[in-house]
């Protein structure tokens, strides 16, 4: 059974059809990339999975269960974690506190117990901390552990956001443009990390990217979107050489220049 199935979904904003009967399925352990020009509907697809938008038609299934019955806050608990295109961290908290929010769905102690800080709460907090520490080690964030987000360089923030998503201990990780605005060196690091996340943590990765070149090296499969429609799905090489993909990309380039 596929881990995540998107089945003929349509999303409209007023007159704009952001997604038009989009279907695909992500297999467990896969790195699946979605590429497409600006406004193709890539982020909308992620927001749909996060349950921020309601589809007009179609269904979303995670491990066979429909997501449409769930609210946005229940998605993380299933093991679906994500990052955002324009980094949405908790600006005034430290890196550590940001990652600890990722543990939110794993909390077990009740609110009165938290207010009283009972021994059970203490044990749980220590366990959360240990889990977050593993993520910090994995992503080499030790240097920034107690730093406030507001003062961090852009590249580090991007890593922190990935870390926060990993703290959920997800089964699927959704990365919205993980490479955008990174330097070459940072991009390279990110590429290895994404590979590691799959290899060492066994997490399925669903990734949105602009640039075909960047994703083809790490992805198992690629899906190309344009104007809300799927135009090709397959291996990176097959999608890259697909005539309609080339057309879509050349079209936007021609329009941009």
């Amino acid at each position: 059974m596929s881990l995540l199935e998107v089945d003929g979904v349509t999303v409209r904003f007023g007159g704009v059809t952001a997604l038009d009967r989009v279907s695909f399925a992500v297999e467990p352990g896969e790195i699946f990339s979605i590429v497409g020009p600006n406004g193709a509907g890539k982020s909308t697809l992620f927001n749909l999975i996060s349950r921020f938008h309601e589809p007009e038609e179609g269904d979303l299934r995670f491990a066979g269960e429909s997501l449409l019955r769930l609210a946005a806050a229940e998605i993380g608990g299933l093991g679906i974690a994500r990052t955002f295109q324009n980094i949405e961290l908790f600006e005034h908290s430290s890196v550590l506190e940001n990652l600890l929010v990722g543990r939110h769905t794993r909390r077990r102690v009740s609110i009165p117990e938290q207010i009283l800080f009972t021994p059970a709460t203490r044990r749980e907090e220590i366990a959360h901390r240990a889990a977050v520490e593993r993520v910090i080690d994995f992503l080499d964030l030790q240097l920034y552990r107690d730093r406030t987000i507001a003062g961090l360089p852009y590249g580090v923030r991007k890593v922190v956001e990935v870390g926060r998503a990993l703290a959920i201990e997800p089964r699927v990780l959704l990365l919205d443009e993980p490479y955008s605005r990174l330097s070459n060196e940072e991009s390279m690091d990110m590429r290895f990390r994404i590979g590691d996340i799959r290899a060492r943590m066994g997490v399925t990765v669903l990734m949105v990217e602009h640039d075909m070149g960047l994703v083809s090296a790490v992805s198992d499969r690629v899906m190309a979107l344009a104007d809300g429609r799927v135009i090709a799905t397959g291996t990176p090489a097959a999608v890259q050489s697909h005539p309609r993909v080339i057309e879509a990309y050349l079209g936007t380039q021609a329009a941009a220049s």
Partner: peptide
Amino acid sequence: NVLRTPLGRAFVAIRDSEISAQAMG
């Protein structure tokens, strides 16, 4: 105590970014 437990972190989370607080559950 609230501030050093999940509840306090949830408060700060909805203050700084409702959208990602939601994505964090």
